[in-house]
Simulated scan of single mutants.
Amino acid sequence: MESNKKTNITLINPFEVPEGKIEESIVYWEACRDFLKKEPGYISTKLHKSIKEGSKFELINVAVWESPKAFTEASQKMAKELGVLPPEGLKANPSLYSVISE
């Protein structure tokens, strides 16, 4: 890796989705995405759905941000301003990662 190359961080957020709440959870994720993509430091995001029936983490969000600070500030702002509640029982498990090998 070049020493002057800017490195981004990756958010990996697996969701435990309550039974019967997949569509409602996707709508909630889309509202969050629409809010966050307007924030400074946002680069991209994709929502993945498990192809395995009964998976613990039925949805997984993978997002790229310029920095942990940008993600944290945007998330805090979203928590205050989004105005949309998550589906009852939806459990997020977010964590930030940096690439260490390609």
Rank of each mutant, 00 (worst) to 15 (best):
E81M: 12
L59G: 01
S101C: 14
N61L: 09
C32L: 13
M1W: 12
I12Q: 02
E39S: 14
S55H: 11
P87H: 04
S50I: 06
S44E: 09
Y28M: 04
M1I: 14
P94H: 01
E30R: 07
W65P: 00
A70D: 11
E58K: 10
E88C: 02
K69E: 14
I60G: 02
F57G: 03
K37R: 15
T10H: 07
G54A: 10
A79Q: 13
S3F: 12
T10R: 07
E39Y: 05
A70I: 05
L85N: 12
I22C: 07
E16M: 08
K46E: 13
E19C: 04
E58S: 08
L36G: 01
P94K: 01
P86L: 00
I12N: 00
L90C: 02
K5F: 14
G54P: 06
V17Y: 03
Q76E: 15
K52V: 15
L59N: 00
S55Y: 11
N4M: 13
T45C: 10
A92G: 08
I9R: 03
P86D: 00
G41S: 06
E88Q: 10
K46F: 09
F15R: 02
A70S: 12
A31I: 03
A92P: 05
P68L: 09
P87T: 00
V17N: 03
E81R: 09
T72I: 15
L11H: 03
A74S: 11
G89L: 08
L96V: 03
K56N: 11
S98P: 05
A74C: 06
N13I: 00
T7F: 13
E16L: 06
T7H: 14
Y97T: 05
A70G: 05
F71S: 02
E102V: 10
S75L: 11
G89A: 01
R33C: 09
I100A: 12
E53K: 11
S50E: 09
G41C: 08
A74Q: 09
S67D: 07
N4P: 09
T45V: 10
L96E: 05
P94S: 03
I43E: 08
S44P: 14
K5I: 15
K77L: 13
E24P: 02
T10I: 14
G54S: 08
L59Q: 02
